[in-house]
Design a protein around this nucleic acid. Structure first.
Lengths: 211, 211
DNA sequence: CTACTTTTTAAACAATTGTTTAAAATAAGT
DNA sequence: ACTTATTTTAAACAATTGTTTAAAAAGTAG
């Protein structure tokens, strides 16, 4: 398997891509292996030939999604910027990223609930975050009184809540407020600025507020 | 059907309760009608006797969940309190409510994505919110300069993001940060206070900040 | 008790599910 | 060309799916 040639852009990757798309929109038990196979244009058996089962394939997709998810954060943290700058950049990047992949957050949360084992530590997300030095940078800023003394888990929660939820709640919010897609997009653009100002004001209360 | 006696605490309601529990944890396509029936202790056919199909039953549960969901807000808005007080009370109520029903937000969002039609307007959530007078109260506060001029949809988004997401992200956050349930609970308690202060500071910037 | 309606069940239905088997097609190596 | 290994397919597998049918059980009323 996969030993003869390295043109992995071929079947194996095509299956992964199709599976990602289908799983994302319909969830694990909301779709069938035949549906995925058909969207690639291959036989069902080939799916079990490359990946051992539907479940295995799903785990793969889920883990990759989680990885993408963390990557957009890590990239920002690695930059040589102040915390305020990183905050702005992180929020902008998250909104930008999630606008392109709006199904991602819901897929991850629903997927984690279905998946029995928590295989989150396998990808060592915490380690990847630590390596960026973001925690030390925050600790130092907190010691210097430049940043509010809040546990890093709560900080993470603040960021994720205010970036992810607005995207994943589109159907609910549009349904309640009878909004069109365009209206929602406008609201989201404004929300991006709101979140930036609110979080910066809260986390770095000493800086001059003139936004 | 249901005409002979009003002891609705009986089969029909028992099915609804069981269906709610099962649907909540496993989703629509993640469970079977037989699973629901067995958890009630009845035959599968009886499920289709009371409700016409699995889909119909699901829509019913979903709508009820959405209703509960809005009710906890409406109740607060109806009180005769200042906006700051309502803010605090709403956040506390939401956290309290969601601690009891942590699967609710994810169920609703995933459910809305599966359900084809947006039957959100059927329950007239917007009307129910309007009747509380909360929008007028905010408008007036905004005119008087007591409240930041933010679109009500963004305000809703801020509240929901910061109350719902922390609950629904438990598995993800616990997975990333290798937290125990107890630790997560502690973080959540602290987060409740953080959210209250942050939102009040942001929405009502003129009041003295001494918390 | 009898006639009737409501509730509940057992069994069957056809369709679909994830997965496997065995054979065919294609590519690679000699 | 021949032999072997890899990729792909068609067909079948047993299990499970949501739903229906027909009959039994339980309740209600006269």
């Amino acid at each position: 398997m996969r030993k003869t040639m390295e043109k992995d852009l071929s079947t194996e990757q095509k299956i992964k891509d199709a599976a990602r798309k289908v799983f994302m929109t319909k969830g694990f038990s909301g779709c069938t292996t035949r549906e995925i196979a058909k969207s690639v244009g291959i036989n069902v058996a080939l799916l079990n030939y490359y990946f051992r089962s539907k479940g295995k394939l799903f785990e793969l997709i889920l883990e990759a999604a989680l990885s993408d998810f963390i990557d957009s954060m890590v990239e920002v943290f690695h930059q040589d910027l102040s915390l305020e700058e990183k905050t702005r950049m992180l929020i902008d990047k998250e909104f930008e990223f999630l606008r392109k992949h709006p199904e991602l957050p819901l897929f991850i949360h629903a997927g984690l609930n279905q998946s029995s084992d928590n295989e989150l530590d396998q990808s060592n997300f915490l380690g990847r975050l630590h390596k960026t030095g973001i925690f030390e940078q925050c600790e130092q800023a907190q010691r210097e009184g430049k940043m509010r003394k809040v546990n890093m888990i709560n900080v993470t929660l603040l960021f994720m809540s205010n970036c992810h939820f607005p995207i994943m709640s589109k159907k609910l919010v549009c349904g309640i407020y009878q909004m069109s897609d365009q209206e929602h997009e406008d609201r989201l653009n404004e929300h991006q600025e709101i979140v930036k100002e609110m979080l910066i004001n809260y986390l770095f209360p000493n800086t001059t507020k003139n936004a």
